[in-house]
């Protein structure tokens, strides 16, 4: 790996970290296409590198959200049971699929996610529901932007758990965090405020990723040079992302991101 290549991979990781922190996702949907199409890394190695960078994103952001009480640990652990099982199954399955097939599945996944993100942005305000103290899981946090304490109760937990096993499976299969599935499900299905959903997802994605990271490692797909360079970039980028996130209009970021992933999906589908 030349110094220039190293810097480019670090830069890609930094962009991934910024996007991850801004959008509450692992960032694999950006990093994997860059590693595959930009640097010519085989699909399996790109997925393995992405899985490790998700752990970096999660570790860098989760501690902040847990300390502030925004992450709902009980909800996160309840969903994580299903997600880790899905992630292990996905990690094993991915190693029996050819790289081209994995690439096509990834492109189709991107298209679905673009639709979900578009939908989520348009229906952002629809998720707040009345607080139910008898719910099995409740939560509260202080919202600095709204300058008030937000209380919420979790509803339809079994449905969220079912979605979590799908998110975990896709995470292990495609090297993504699964936040793009978990966050909309927690928000739209379980009625959790977006901030708590994003923070809880950030707590979860690292645990989900580690379950499949060992599987990828055992198959020899982990390239230490690309992975470490991307991780260093992600660690820097996620710090930067959490600082600039508050100053940017989130809806604009999401629309730009949707265009970006549509372009990437088209290229991966027809490459």
């Amino acid at each position: 790996m030349s110094p220039l290549l190293f810097l480019l991979v670090v830069l890609s990781g930094a962009v991934t970290g910024v996007l991850g922190a801004l959008l509450g996702i692992g960032g694999g949907i950006f990093l994997i296409p860059v590693l595959v199409m930009g640097f010519g890394l085989p699909m399996h190695q790109a997925v393995a590198a992405s899985v490790v960078t998700i752990i970096a994103t999660s570790s860098a952001t989760a501690s902040v959200y847990v300390d502030k009480g925004i992450s709902n640990i009980r909800l996160g652990m309840s969903l994580e049971v299903m997600t880790t099982i899905g992630a292990v199954l996905g990690g094993v399955t991915a190693n029996y699929l050819p790289g081209a097939a994995l690439q096509k599945i990834f492109a189709m996944f991107l298209l679905v996610m673009a639709g979900l993100m578009w939908n989520k942005t348009r229906r952002h305000a629809a998720a707040r529901v009345a607080f139910d103290a008898s719910a099995s899981i409740t939560g509260e946090y202080y919202d600095e932007a709204e300058k008030q304490t937000v209380r919420y109760s979790v509803r339809r937990l079994p449905a969220a758990m079912l979605a979590s096993i799908v998110a975990g499976n896709l995470s292990g299969l495609l090297g993504i965090g699964g936040g793009l599935i978990k966050v909309p499900v927690m928000n739209m299905v379980s009625g959790i405020p977006m901030k708590a959903a994003t923070a809880t997802s950030n707590f979860m994605i690292g645990v989900t990723a580690v379950a499949s990271a060992f599987i990828y490692f055992s198959y020899g797909h982990l390239d230490p040079l690309y992975t470490s360079a991307a991780v260093l970039g992600v660690l820097a980028g996620s710090q930067l992302g959490t600082r600039i996130g508050a100053k940017l209009h989130s809806r604009t970021i999401v629309y730009v991101f949707i265009v970006l992933i549509l372009v990437v999906a088209a290229r991966m589908m027809f490459a």
């Binding site: 490790v52 752990i55 999660s58 570790s59 690292g206 990723a209 060992f214 230490p224």
Partner: peptide, 8 residues
């Protein structure tokens, strides 16, 4: 990489 994987 291992240190990172042990963090979660």
């Amino acid at each position: 990489i291992f240190a990172l994987m042990l963090t979660p």
